[in-house]
Write a protein that binds this DNA or RNA. Structure first.
Length: 544
DNA sequence: CTAGGGTTAG
């Protein structure tokens, strides 16, 4: 090779090729050595490229050596190095460099914002984002997706709205992130608005697999199954993810049989292969539908017929299905026979079944296996003790919770009205419509009494203090949200609520009665699944 | 022919 023919441009080409190869770790150092030998050091661009490819292939220490050895560093050198540090999880080093950049550009700021979001420091990311002198579309996308990734979809949507108000035109990335935020927040109105906006502005040629899957997933996660199906049927092409999203969406929404039909259709269609995620959806459908035999069959087919390895989630669904339908011993056998270590989710599924079928002994086994316990597990055990009348057990759980300092996660429900999301926390008085809500709840209460409604006390029994607090302050968050939906939402439109915890029996009964008395459809997404209430009945058939 | 975001399903 004639060195004279190798200039900075061709060298950058070689770097890119080496980094895309299967063995970048072996191919980059010789190129680096050649670069030094050829005397291309003065070319900052080439060295920037080297920093970039070293970082991108995980060789951050090498990247840093190059960076430190450079005689002339420009903004791109800093940006590449900041990005490298941030991607390797070393935000500290990234921040140190960020302080030293002579002329930071929007790229510099955005790299730092994204890096902080990746390191779960969304608060610092947000501060930096607000401080940025110039924000472009990618800066907005980075911050919005950072919020979604840090489980703050409501905040993400607020930012999305601000971005639109400032006149930015969303691109593919923005739309994907914003739809995912709507899915997370259960913001159907906003999701529909984005859908319509994309169509009206003809933002994309068509809804491809990625966009289409994100769209249908949004509808499914907002409880709008018909709309999700509509998107699904109209898509030009579907990949495995698309089918999985549809199957899972049906399962989550309680359309168990339809979900299984959809899986059969997927097989008949034959253009895509099911994968392990497909079977998570299939088993979820069986679990929510209480189809024990069908579930067992599919569980064994995963490996035998489809040659797909069983993953933790498959076991979790299977344990959930068996435990919930009362096959506690079989569920326990599945757990002890698992090739991997059962996690808290698995034991929790067994615990839930024990609570339902009042098996104290098995419940105690389950709870002793859950290490980093959260309040919900203790509450479940306590409820079980209360249900079988073992009050000493209830007291034991309370003292365990006190001594371990386990705090209860406050219940939080949200409802979207006119595109803005209102959040209610159990017993919270801070909402501006607090007084109206309580007037409404009193009205509901008296109407319910006429129908012979009695509070379900079993599930609130475990904690007398909490019970008193609830009497004094109000209600579980979903009741506040439902009352607010009756007041503020347009009539004849379903009241849609997203809750962070699972339904308690009392609130479930409450929702059923409200749907009957006011002839309003109520859709609640709780931690585990959807509940569609219509004229006094729930799609879960009181099986959850 | 340099650098930042996003890539959907569990």
């Amino acid at each position: 090779m004639k060195p004279s023919r190798l200039n900075q441009h061709s060298f950058l080409f070689l770097l890119r090729e080496a980094s895309a190869s299967s063995t970048p770790h072996r191919r980059l150092p010789p190129l680096h050595a050649l670069l030094v030998k050829l005397g291309l050091q003065p070319y900052t661009r080439v060295y920037n490229g080297l920093i970039w490819v070293y970082s991108a292939t995980g060789l951050v220490a090498d990247a840093r050596r190059v960076f430190d050895g450079m005689s002339h560093r420009d903004t791109v050198s800093f940006n590449s190095m900041i990005h490298g540090h941030a991607m390797s999880g070393d935000v500290g080093s990234a921040l140190q460099l960020f302080e030293r950049v002579p002329a930071p550009s929007p790229v510099t700021w955005t790299s730092m914002v994204a890096g902080l979001c990746r390191a779960w420091d969304v608060a610092s990311a947000r501060r930096l984002f607000e401080e940025m002198p110039v924000r472009d579309l990618i800066s907005w996308n980075a911050m919005i997706s950072g919020l979604v990734g840090n489980r703050q979809p409501v905040e993400a949507l607020c930012l999305f709205r601000r971005m639109m108000a400032e006149g930015f035109v969303p691109n593919r990335g923005t739309v994907l992130t914003a739809l995912s935020a709507c899915a997370g927040a259960g913001a159907l109105e906003t999701g529909k608005w984005i859908h319509a906006f994309v169509e009206k502005k003809r933002l994309f040629r068509w809804w491809d697999e990625f966009l289409g899957t994100a769209l249908l997933d949004m509808y499914a996660k907002c409880g709008a199954v018909e709309l999700a199906l509509d998107v699904f049927t109209k898509l030009r092409s579907r990949n495995t993810c698309t089918w999985n999203a549809m199957i899972n969406g049906l399962a989550m929404n309680g359309y168990s049989t339809k979900a299984l039909d959809m899986f059969r259709q997927m097989e008949l269609d034959g253009t895509v292969e099911p994968d392990e995620v497909t079977f998570v959806g299939v088993l979820l459908a069986c679990s929510h539908g209480g189809f024990v035999d069908v579930g067992r069959e599919h569980f064994y087919m995963i490996e035998k017929k489809y040659d797909i390895g069983l993953i933790l989630e498959h076991y979790a669904c299977m344990v959930d299905l068996l435990a919930r339908s009362g096959h506690l011993q079989e569920a326990h056998k599945i757990i002890t026979g698992m090739p991997m270590k059962p996690d808290a989710v698995i034991w929790r599924a067994l615990l839930g079944g024990c609570r339902l079928h009042k098996d104290v002994k098995m419940a105690e086994t389950a709870i002793s296996e859950i290490e980093a316990t959260c309040s919900g597990d203790h509450v479940l055990l306590s409820n079980l003790y209360a249900a079988v009348g073992r009050w000493s057990g209830v007291e034991d759980v309370r003292s365990t919770m006190r001594s371990k300092g386990i705090e209860k996660i406050p219940g939080c429900s949200s409802i979207e009205i006119n595109g803005s999301i209102h959040e209610f926390i159990s017993g919270d008085k801070s909402h501006p419509s607090y007084n109206e809500i309580h007037v409404k709840l009193a009205e509901i209460g008296s109407k319910m009494q006429l129908q012979g409604y009695v509070t379900e006390t079993a599930e609130v029994f475990y904690d007398v203090e909490e019970e008193e607090k609830e009497q004094a302050l109000g209600h579980h968050s979903e009741k506040l949200a439902i009352a607010f939906g009756l007041i503020g939402g347009p009539p004849n439109v379903a009241i849609r609520i997203v809750k962070n915890l699972r339904f308690c029996a009392d609130c479930h009964k409450f929702a059923k009665l409200v749907s009957q008395i006011y002839h309003r459809e109520i859709v609640v997404r709780d931690r585990a699944r959807f509940h569609h209430f219509r004229e006094g009945t729930c799609s879960c058939n009181d099986f959850w």
